[in-house]
Every structure is written in structure tokens, then in C-alpha cells.
């Protein structure tokens, strides 16, 4: 097992795929000359040349559309957004073209395209640079949405995303690019889209968390372990299509569910998980489903307020104790 940073794991996935298939190219702001705003694409220009690693102007709507057109014509673009906050100006391309034309053309066009970049909170960057977008994109049939929490999943799932013939929204994290983790050495390592990972087994409560929230879930599970309770932690990894079976099986065992989700709460991924689970597991629930989310305000700038705004391990721990009827 190699120890890689998250950025290195993402790079390894792209490099391996681009070595394998010359129809794949990477395009985005500062991906080439500057080696990537977060050094994800470091060395890729030198390796693949400027026809396959392409710097763009600050024009998200333009290069997103350009990528979609390329995908419709048989290429397999990887479009990097410097952050998903900036993709809001490209959202018409993603939602009205990438997500829908396969359907509207009766399957005449495929969209083998990956849109990737950091999602969600990134520290004191204030309201416009701290948005979590997974619920927005997962609302639209036609898009696949992946949100990763560690280098191994990043590599395995990005390779699968690049090979997929549908448009994939691939959500990373600025906070986690430097995070190291073991990555499988297996040759041509892929992880199937749509399979959750049970990160920790337990029978006392199920905690579901993706991306950074996965780590809050794990910390809360550790706190519960200190109290003598075994929490089951599930990282869904793919938001859409969601792996309901894994969460359902877990809730049937634990009879209670807490969801950690750093999005604003209204109509978030946590809302959908709560809806699905109450509907699929109604008779298995011994307590209301609880969720721990960002506060229902735009992200603040001040450090203390930002800490308060984000879902914490402590909040998660308390929610778990509540659904376990311990407090």
C-alpha cells in the first residue's frame, strides 16, 4: 500500500487513465502551467503536453460547455473547477446539457465527462466560497454524484468516474488535499460507483457521513466507543446513485440513524437520506432520525462563527446519544 496525499491519489487516477486512453484530457483554470491551484495536476502538462492538459480563461460556463461538446463528440474530458462555488456560473451547461441531452436525444449522445473540484467549506473564505453543492447536483436525474473522504476512495472512484459514460460530479475537499492515506497498489484499481463503505461496524447507532463529515462521524464513533457503545459508520461515497441497501441493512441492525452533512440543512442530502430511511425502515426505527448539518445561514467569515456553523464531532456524538436514549 502506498501512502499518498489526496491530491496525489487524484492525480494518480487521472494519469493512469490518460495513459490508458488518449481520448481523455484535463481542462480547467491553472491546471497546466501552474500545475493546478492545489497542485493536483502537478507534472501532468509535462507528461501529456498542452493538447491534453489545457489551461482555460476564467470562464466556467465556456469551458464546461466546451467539455460537454467534446464529450458528445467522443472525447472523455475531465473538467476541473477551482472550487464548486465557481461552477455556479456553469450550472446551465451541467444541468441542462450534460444531465439531460442523453435523455432528450433518446440515447444518441453519451456524456463521458467528469466535473471535479473541491466542494464545501474551506475555512475562512466567507459565504461565497464555502458552499456545499452535492444536494443541488444530486437533484437532477442524469448526473452521478461522488463525494470522497480519503485517498484510496478518491483514486478508485475517480478512475471509475472517468470510465463512466454518464456525466459525473466528483466532489473533493480543499481541507483534505494534503491528507495522507493508504492507497491500494492493485493494478488498475477501481471502486464501483454506487457502493457505500462500512468504515466501522457496530450495533448501537448508524452514522452516515460523506466527505469531511465522514471524519466527524468517525470521531463521534470514537467518543461513543469510550462510553462503551459501538457505532456503525457508513461513508456513502456515492451520493447518486445512493447505496440504500447498505444503510437500510445497518439501520435494521441498529434501529437508529444519525446523518452528518456539512450542507445547509434545507432539502440537503441528509433530508433525502432521512426520507428514504424512514420510508424503507419505518418499523425498524426506535428513534427519530437525527442529522447534524451546517447552520441554516450563509457561511460566516469569523473563525469562531465558522466553527459554530460547521457540524462537529461533538454535535454528532450528542445526536447519537439522543437517539440512543442515553441523555
Amino acid at each position: 500500500m502506498a501512502q499518498l496525499q489526496l491530491r496525489e491519489a487524484i492525480r494518480a487516477a487521472m494519469v493512469e487513465e490518460m495513459d490508458r486512453d488518449e481520448d481523455i484530457f484535463l481542462m480547467g483554470e491553472e491546471v497546466a502551467q501552474y500545475n493546478g491551484a492545489y497542485k493536483v495536476s502537478e507534472g501532468m502538462l509535462a507528461r501529456f503536453g498542452e493538447k491534453r492538459v489545457i489551461d482555460t480563461p476564467i470562464s466556467e460556463n465556456g469551458f464546461a460547455g466546451l467539455g460537454i461538446g467534446a464529450a458528445m463528440n467522443g472525447l472523455r474530458p475531465i473538467i476541473e473547477f477551482m472550487t464548486w462555488n465557481f461552477a455556479f456560473v456553469a450550472i446551465d451547461q451541467i444541468i441542462n446539457n450534460a444531465a439531460k441531452i442523453r435523455y432528450m436525444s433518446g440515447g444518441q449522445f453519451k456524456f463521458p465527462i467528469v466535473f471535479r473540484g473541491p466542494n464545501g467549506a474551506a475555512g475562512q473564505l466567507a459565504a461565497t466560497h464555502n458552499t456545499s453543492v452535492e444536494s443541488i447536483y444530486s437533484q437532477f436525474p442524469g448526473l452521478k454524484v461522488i463525494s470522497i473522504s480519503n485517498p484510496d476512495d478518491a483514486k478508485g472512484l475517480l478512475k471509475s468516474a472517468i470510465r463512466d459514460d454518464d456525466p459525473v460530479i466528483f466532489l473533493e475537499s480543499e481541507f483534505m488535499y494534503g491528507m495522507r492515506g493508504e492507497v491500494s497498489d492493485e493494478e488498475d484499481y477501481t471502486i464501483p460507483i454506487g457502493k457505500a463503505r462500512i468504515a466501522r461496524e457496530g450495533d448501537a447507532v448508524t452514522i452516515v457521513g460523506h466527505n469531511k463529515s465522514y471524519w466527524r462521524a468517525m470521531e463521534a464513533a470514537e467518543m461513543l466507543a469510550a462510553d462503551g457503545y459501538a457505532a456503525e459508520v457508513i461513508d456513502p461515497r456515492t451520493i447518486r446513485p445512493f447505496d440504500w441497501d447498505t444503510v437500510v441493512a445497518s439501520v435494521k441492525k441498529t434501529n437508529r440513524l444519525v446523518i452528518v452533512d456539512e450542507s445547509n440543512p434545507f432539502a440537503s442530502v441528509s433530508s433525502e437520506i432521512a426520507f428514504q430511511i424512514q420510508s424503507r425502515c419505518f418499523d425498524d426505527l426506535d428513534a427519530p432520525i437525527m442529522r447534524v448539518t451546517a447552520k441554516d445561514v450563509p457561511a460566516p467569515y469569523a473563525k469562531n462563527l465558522m466553527e459554530y456553523y460547521m457540524p462537529s464531532a461533538e454535535d454528532t456524538y450528542r445526536a447519537c446519544r439522543k437517539v440512543m436514549y442515553l441523555d
Partner: peptide, 29 residues
């Protein structure tokens, strides 16, 4: 709780005879 209701049905228990220990006397597993 829904689970408590189901268990009560499965075991032929009358919920009115069960003392709830959850919030506001909710009967739980």
C-alpha cells in the same frame, strides 16, 4: 417508536401495559 409498535405486535403485547422510558414516555425498543 415504530420499532416498539412492531415488536409489540410481533409478541402480542398491549402497548398500553408497557411503560415508556423514552422522551415524554415514548415506548422504545
Amino acid at each position: 417508536s415504530p420499532l416498539a409498535r412492531k415488536l409489540a405486535i410481533d409478541h402480542g403485547l398491549d402497548l398500553r401495559t408497557v411503560r415508556g422510558s423514552g422522551p415524554e414516555g415514548r415506548i422504545i425498543k
